[in-house]
Design a protein around this nucleic acid. Structure first.
Length: 497
RNA sequence: GGCCCCAUCGUCUAGCGGCCUAGGACGACACCCUUUCAAGGUGUAGAUCGCGGGUUCGAAUCCCGCUGGGGUCACCA
C-alpha cells in the first residue's frame, strides 16, 4: 500500500440517467472522505456517453443531491478545473485520439458486425451451451475483406483485442490481487458506432488524463476491471489504485433497489434526515473506525477515514439505526438551527407562510423545544406541532375520562382546574405546575389522572409534549377555551345520560 | 451455467495468531427517571466466529475443500 497517504485524487463518475442512489452516495462519501483525508481533490465527472439513456435534468438533480449532502466537488461541472471539460460528451476528440493510437498498435480493431449478427452468434453459442460473447469475426478478417469493408463506408465499432492467452491481475486494495484468464475475456466495444466511447474506454482515458490516483467504485465493476487494466497496459500508463467498494444492500441481502423502499438519497433528505446524520450513518456501512466509536463529526470522519478499514463485504441498510442517528443529530442542533431547518416543512403543511415572518419564526422557535427530543425526522414536525395550532374539534370521552373516574367527577375536576388556572398570577411553566399539583391534593385525585384529563382536554390526545410546557405554549386564553370546551362536551354527556 | 467476489449476534461492525469464557452500536426485553410520549440511565437476552479438514504449543484470525449468498456476462453505466 505505497503512497496511499499522498494527496489523492478521487472522482465520482455517474451517468446522468436518474436520481442518485443511496449506495452511490455512500461511494461519493468514501471518495470525498479519502480526498479530504489526504488533502487531495475530489472530482465530479459526468459520464454521459450513452445518448439513448440520457435523461433531461438528471445532471442537475445529481449535482443537487451531492450539494445537499454537503459534499462539494473540487473539480467538475460548474466549478471547472485544470482538466476541463468534465463531461465526457465534450471530450470525444480525446477518446478518438487515444483510440487511434491503440488501433495503430493493433490493440484495438474495427468491427463491422451488425447487431443482428451479434445476436445470432450469441444464440448459436447458447444452443451449443457455450458462454456468450463476440466471436471475434472481424478481428480475423483477411486484409482484402478488411479493405473492402473499410471502403464500404459501413458503420463500425472499435473493439478491444484481448490477448488470447495469459492472465490479467487486478490489484484491488481491499481484496488483494484478483486473477482473470485472458482467454475468458470478451473483445468488448470501446468506441460505439455513433463515435461515443463506452464506459470501459472513457474511464480509463479520463482517469489517466485527470490524474486520478484512486479508482474507487462499486464492486459490480470487478468483473470488467481486467479490461481496464489491459487498457492501461496497452497505453503504457500507470494504473490507479483500484478500490472496489462493497455494496449497500436491502434487507434481503440483495442490491438495494426500488422494491426495498426508498433508494434515492433525495428521498431521505426530503423526509428530513439530516445530511450530517446521513453522512455519519452511511460512512459506517462498509467502514468502521474502532471498537466503540460511531457518532463522528464530519471533521472526525475526515481525520479517521482510511482505505484499509473498508470491509470487502456488502452491508444491509439498517433504517432503524439511521433513525436513531438522525434523532441524535437533531437533538444536537440549537433551537435556532432546528427552527431554521423545520420552517420549510411547516410551510409545506401550511402552519407558517412560505416566507415565514419574524413573528412566525419566533413563535416556532418557542415551540421547537417541545418537540426536539421527540423528532426522528424533520417531516414529522407538522404533525407534532399541529395540536398547538389547531384546537381539538371534538373530544373522545374514552380518552378524556380517566379509567376509574366518571364523567361528572372529571367534569368537576376540569372545572376546578380551569378556575385555578384563571386566577394564576402568571403563566409561567413552574407556576402552572405548582398550582395544578396542589390541586390534585385538594381534589383527592391521582396526579396521573388529573394531568391526563387536562392533557386530553388541552390537546385532544393522550400523547403530547409535557403538559405545562404545552399549556404555556398555548397561552392562557387558548388553554382555558379548550378546557371549557372539554367541560361542555362532558356536560352534554351528562344530560344525554 | 462460466467467471469473479464475499462469509463474526436479526442488522451495522470491532477483531488482522495468544489480551476473545468474541467488544461496541441499532433493534428486542427488563428496570430506573417520569404528568403521557419521547429523551436519558442501568441491565438482560442474542454469535458453538457458515461447515469440514489442515498449519501451529495455540486460529474468528493463516492454508485447502465444501456450502451458502452476492456480482457479472450489452454498441448501459
Amino acid at each position: 500500500m505505497t503512497n496511499t497517504e499522498r494527496p489523492a485524487r478521487t472522482r465520482f463518475a455517474p451517468s446522468p440517467t436518474g436520481y442518485v442512489h443511496i449506495g452511490s452516495m455512500r461511494t461519493v462519501i468514501f471518495e470525498w472522505l479519502w480526498a479530504r483525508h489526504t488533502g487531495g481533490q475530489f472530482v465530479l465527472r459526468i459520464e454521459d456517453t450513452d445518448r439513448n439513456r440520457y435523461v433531461e435534468g438528471a445532471e442537475d438533480q445529481l449535482k443537487e443531491s451531492i450539494r445537499r449532502m454537503g459534499l462539494m466537488w473540487d473539480e467538475g461541472p460548474d466549478v471547472g478545473g485544470p482538466f476541463a471539460p468534465y463531461k465526457q460528451s465534450e471530450r470525444l476528440d480525446l477518446y478518438h485520439r487515444h483510440a487511434d493510437e491503440l488501433l495503430a498498435k493493433g490493440h484495438l480493431y474495427k468491427c463491422w458486425c451488425t447487431p443482428e449478427r451479434l445476436k445470432q452468434v450469441n444464440e448459436e453459442k447458447q444452443a451449443r451451451k457455450e458462454p456468450p460473447g463476440y466471436d471475434r469475426h472481424c478481428r480475423n478478417l483477411s486484409p482484402e475483406e478488411r479493405a473492402e469493408l473499410e471502403a464500404s463506408g459501413k458503420q463500425y465499432v472499435i473493439r478491444l483485442a484481448v490477448p488470447l492467452e495469459g492472465e490479467t491481475i487486478v490489484n484491488d486494495l481491499i481484496r488483494g490481487p484478483i486473477t482473470f484468464q485472458n482467454a475468458l475475456q470478451n473483445d468488448m466495444v470501446m468506441l460505439k458506432s455513433d463515435g461515443f466511447p463506452t464506459y470501459h474506454f472513457a474511464v480509463v482515458v479520463d482517469d489517466h488524463e485527470m490524474q486520478i490516483t484512486h479508482a474507487m467504485r462499486a464492486d459490480e465493476w470487478i468483473a470488467t476491471s481486467p479490461l481496464h487494466v489491459m487498457l492501461y497496459q496497452f497505453f503504457g500508463w500507470e494504473q490507479p489504485v483500484w478500490v472496489h467498494l462493497p455494496n449497500v444492500l436491502g434487507a434481503d441481502g440483495k442490491k438495494l433497489s426500488k422494491r426495498h423502499g426508498d433508494t434515492a438519497i433525495t428521498d431521505y433528505l426530503d423526509k428530513g434526515y439530516l445530511p450530517e446524520a446521513l453522512l455519519n450513518f452511511l460512512a459506517l456501512i462498509g467502514w468502521g473506525y474502532d471498537e466503540t466509536t460511531e457518532i463522528m463529526t464530519r471533521d472526525e470522519l475526515i481525520e479517521r477515514f482510511t482505505l484499509d478499514r473498508i470491509s470487502p463485504s456488502g452491508g444491509v441498510l439498517n433504517l432503524e439505526k439511521l433513525n436513531k442517528f438522525n434523532g441524535i443529530y437533531i437533538r444536537q442542533l440549537s433551537t435556532a438551527e432546528l427552527t431554521e431547518r423545520l420552517l420549510p416543512y411547516l410551510a409545506d403543511a401550511g402552519l407558517v407562510g412560505a416566507e415565514p415572518s419574524a413573528a412566525e419564526r419566533a413563535r416556532i422557535e418557542e415551540l421547537v423545544p417541545l418537540i426536539q427530543e421527540r423528532l426522528v425526522v424533520l417531516s414529522e414536525a407538522p404533525d407534532l406541532l399541529r395540536l398547538v395550532f389547531t384546537a381539538p374539534d371534538s373530544y373522545d370521552h374514552a380518552l378524556l375520562i380517566p379509567k376509574k373516574l366518571d364523567a361528572s367527577t372529571t367534569q368537576q375536576a376540569l372545572h376546578a382546574a380551569t378556575a385555578a388556572l384563571r386566577e394564576l398570577p402568571s403563566w409561567e411553566v413552574a407556576v402552572i405546575e405548582a398550582r395544578l399539583r396542589s390541586l390534585t391534593e385538594e381534589l383527592g385525585l391521582k396526579v396521573g389522572d388529573l394531568f391526563m384529563a387536562l392533557r386530553v382536554a388541552a390537546t385532544g390526545s393522550k400523547v403530547s409534549p409535557p403538559l405545562f410546557e404545552t399549556m404555556h405554549a398555548l397561552g392562557r386564553e387558548e388553554t382555558l377555551t379548550r378546557l371549557e370546551r372539554a367541560i361542555a362536551s362532558l356536560g352534554a354527556v351528562g344530560t344525554a345520560a
